[in-house]
Structure formats: structure tokens, C-alpha cells
Design a protein around this nucleic acid. Structure first.
Lengths: 201, 201
DNA sequence: ACAAACATACCAACCGGTCGGTATCTTTGA
DNA sequence: TCAAAGATACCGACCGGTTGGTATGTTTGT
């Protein structure tokens, strides 16, 4: 019921998703739905929270997490995001970003849950960025938090442009620029290291 | 009727905006509304097209456009975007981005109009970027188009994070990183030149 | 036995869109 | 010149399918 929310919200948005759609997709009836959720809004907030958990474990278990060097992990993160930009927009775009863009002023509960997913994910990057910064450019005039936020903005924006264009190509070019940004900040030559080499794109 | 659409869509999104809301805000009746637009969808597509025109003239008339050096114009653009990040999210976020994120799969007409506004705006940056690239780094391995797209992604993403956080502060920090990205690409020292100096933020 | 987990039937409000009608402006013809 | 004819702009009551939510019954696990 929460998982089907991912598809529904990414395909139709929150307001256009009907409770009956959710029931049909999840194989339950309306009575069952309202047994578990006080309202449609309550459901959407739960979906956002669930999205945060699912993505959390996706990135925690990703192979780049095992790299020894913190900068490799940061670049590995960017490359991993590049890699998962595949299929239709409904497959790779962000549920939390879609929700928050649509209802940020109408539903504080959904907004808060989606914001927690987004900024909670950004938070997981901060430690690696801080370590890499200390090792490569301790005098830099930017904070680890601001770079983490910038990566999330570039990705969320990549999703918006991908939806406008209808495919992942534009988004991949944007993530390429994001990688270049990280490389330049840390003073590493373009294209070196990371999981990207040999991935063939 | 088109202008009120900017506020409505930014505050409630497309699906949650009722035709009655539009009529009340614009001071017309339902009959009048459907006299000018075949459907609500038709109206939204017109709003997206109008948004493209309004932003087009906003940036065409901005002061940074008069700068002689192409790189100054590119940096001036980024600084201008930084400057207009003021007030509530409903005042500075992008109508086309909001629309496309919500209905890209449900309404091809709205998607196309919003995409035209976004990529049409990006297109206006390409000439300046190409000139600056030729002057400062003709061997660079990135295209003017890809950088233009990257700026739009960073901005659209900044809007998403701003909506999640509830104010423009996060968005400004993201645009700061965007400026740094442009500076590094063109090899200029951080914080030099442009309209930002003395603007006091 | 009993509460949690469903299902069925139903409702009242809502909402996009229609329709007959009116007021005003433009064109036409003699 | 001016009235008949037609086009355009606009109004607001109304329609009927939709929708989030409820009330009540049934099944299931312990």
C-alpha cells in the first residue's frame, strides 16, 4: 500500500491520485485503506516516510560505500546516482521531491515528511564530504552541508528537466556536471577514479 | 486570468486549483472562463506559455544584460537569480517547473508548454556561455548547452529544497555553489566581478 | 471470546463542464 | 445613415459523474 504509492505519486502526482486508485493498485478495498490510514493525507505522509527508509537502505547497501577513501565515496555516490538514471521518469524520479513541490503549502504533515526524507538523505553525505574536505581542501570557503544540499538540488532539478524532456538523457548530462563540480572542488582531474570508469554510458 | 494562474499554481498546484478558484481570483464567472478556454487543461497550457513570455522579458530587460564581457553576463545571470530569491516560496519559484513535475505524464499539452518555457529560457544562456567558453577555455570537455541545462537544474532543484524548507535561504546557498561552479569552469577567482559585490546578502 | 484486519454499501459534498440567455460591438446592405 | 443581422464577450444556474470518507458487517488470528 505504501509501495504502490511510489508509482502512483510519480505517475499522477498526489492530488490526481484517487483513494480508489490506491486500493485497486494495492489490492485492498476502501474499508481496508481507511482502517490503516486516517485520511489520504495521512497516507501520503506515510508514503514519504517510507520513501525515506527505502532510499536510505538503497544507498547504505550500495557498493561505493565500501570504498576506503572518503572522496571516492563522494564521487561514488554521484556515479551511483548517474547509474540509476534508467528507464522511464516514473522509475527514477524522487517521490519526496514530487510531493513537496505539489503540496508544500497545503499539507504541513506531508511537507515535513518529505523534507525529512530529502534532508535526511543529504545528511548521510555530510560525513564523507567533511572528511574529504579535511583531506583535500581544509581552507575551502564552502561547508560540507552546503555541498550536500547542492548535490540534492542538482538531482532534484535533473528530475524536473527529465520530466520536461521525457527521458533520462538530460538528467545524466546534469549529473555529469555535478561530478565535474565535485572534482573541481577537491582538485582532482576530471574523469579519474570512481565506479564510472568501465561502466560504459 | 493567466497572471492569477501563477499564484494559484504555485500555492496549490494544478490539480488542487479549482476552476472556481481561478474565476474568483480573476474576477470572472465560470461562463466567462470557459468562453476563453476549452478546458482547465487548456488554461494551464496557456498559463505555462504566458509564464515563458513573462520570464523572457524579465531576463531580457535585466541590467546584467548590458555587460560587455560574455562571462560577466553569465555570472551576472547567476547573481540576478540569486537576487530575486526573496519573499515566500510562492513568489520566486517556477510555475513551469511546478506544472511539469505534477502533470508531465497526464497532460502532454501542459508538459510541452512548460518544457518550452524551461528549455526556451535555457536556450537564451547558450550564446553567452559559448562566447565565454571560446574566450576562456575553448578545449573544455563540456558543451554550452549542457552548462545551460545544469544551471536550470540547480535552480529548479533549489526551488524544490526551498519548498521543503519553507524559505529562500537554502536556495541562496545552492545558487552560491552554482556561481562557484561557473567560476571554476572558466578559471576565474571566487567572488570576483559581477553584480554581486556590494549587493550585500 | 475478542480485537484487529479486512470487505460492502452508501453518502453528501464537490467539481469540471454545459447551456440558454443577455449585453455590447462589428459588419452589411440599401 | 441607420437599422437589421451576426459575431463576440460574458453570465450563472444547473448537471451528473466523481471522491474522500463513513457505517456496518464479516473474516481471521490467538
Amino acid at each position: 500500500m505504501l509501495d504502490t504509492g511510489f508509482t502512483l505519486i510519480r505517475e499522477k502526482g498526489y492530488a490526481a491520485t484517487r483513494v480508489d486508485d490506491i486500493c485497486a493498485a494495492a489490492g485492498v478495498t476502501k474499508g481496508g485503506f481507511f482502517h490503516h490510514f486516517r485520511s489520504k493525507e495521512d497516507w501520503a505522509a506515510a508514503v514519504a516516510a517510507h520513501w525515506g527508509e527505502v532510499t536510505s537502505s538503497l544507498f547504505a547497501d550500495a557498493p561505493y560505500r565500501d570504498l576506503a577513501d572518503p572522496l571516492d565515496r563522494v564521487l561514488g555516490y554521484v556515479d551511483f546516482r548517474h547509474m540509476i538514471l534508467q528507464g522511464s521518469t516514473a522509475e527514477f524520479t524522487c517521490v519526496a521531491g514530487t510531493l513537496v513541490q505539489e503540496i508544500h503549502l497545503e499539507s504541513p504533515a506531508i511537507r515535513a515528511a518529505a523534507a525529512a526524507a530529502i534532508f535526511g538523505h543529504a545528511e548521510t553525505l555530510v560525513a564523507d564530504i567533511a572528511e574529504a574536505r579535511a583531506a583535500h581542501c581544509p581552507q575551502a570557503d564552502w561547508s560540507p552541508e552546503s555541498l550536500a544540499a547542492f548535490t540534492q538540488a542538482a538531482l532534484q532539478g535533473a528530475f524536473v528537466l527529465a520530466k520536461a524532456k521525457g527521458g533520462p538523457d538530460t538528467a545524466r548530462a546534469i549529473v555529469d556536471h555535478l561530478r565535474r563540480h565535485v572534482e573541481m572542488l577537491f582538485g582532482v582531474p576530471h574523469g579519474s577514479g570512481g565506479l564510472k570508469a568501465g561502466a560504459g554510458h
